[in-house]
Amino acid sequence: MIEVKDLTKYYGDKEGRFKALDNVSVSIKDGDFIVILGASGSGKSTFLNVISGLETIDAGSVSFDGHELSKMSEKELTKFRKDNTAYIFQQYYLLPHLNVEKNVRMGADLAGTKDFSSYLEAVGLKEKAKKFPSQLSGGEQQRVAIARALAKKPKVLFLDEPTGALDEKTGRAVLDYIIKLKEKLNFTMIMVTHNENIAQTADRIIKMNSGKIVDVSENAYKKDAYEIGW
């Protein structure tokens, strides 16, 4: 369970200082699929970075299963990320000199997962295990990033615009993979997007604007990746 209370985050120095997050409070249950929806500059990515322990906060608190992230040392935060979280970015960030299999091993080794090929199979890339990122399409690279993240067996998966760099067809396919794997493995999933259609796939939608949460709604009419508009 992630508990966020009165979270405030500033960027910049005295003159150019601005509030990226303004008194944000929310609680996320285990197994939830949350979408954080907002336009560019709304603070959604900052929020994701803060609750995943990548960024520090200026006020408020973020606790994960009762452990306060802001009180953790750098070493404890590293262990927290190692044991609990995985990240998928819009730009994939695969390691270019390692093949697909070895990229997935980056996540698998941390969880002690020996059979990482099953994750490649899950994203339909087992035959491309020996290929390098530069030899894959954008969609395939993002699927490798998914396999790498899931091989880590995370309790929470953070996704920052995972389909943002993909065309509609590939984007839908990647989103479908993510949702199906989430249902199968039942981890908590927190995804940032500016696309209202994609938000329709989540259990709960948190809308953000100017660093504040402006609306939290349960999504009674959950759709799959092929039912939503794009």
């Binding site: 590293t78 990320r81 190692k82 995985a86 990240y87 960030y93 390691l95 980056m106 996540g107 941390l110």
Partner: peptide
Amino acid sequence: NKNIAMMRVFGYSA
């Protein structure tokens, strides 16, 4: 730089 940052994001120590 990016590879190191990615490793750190995943939980690898310095």
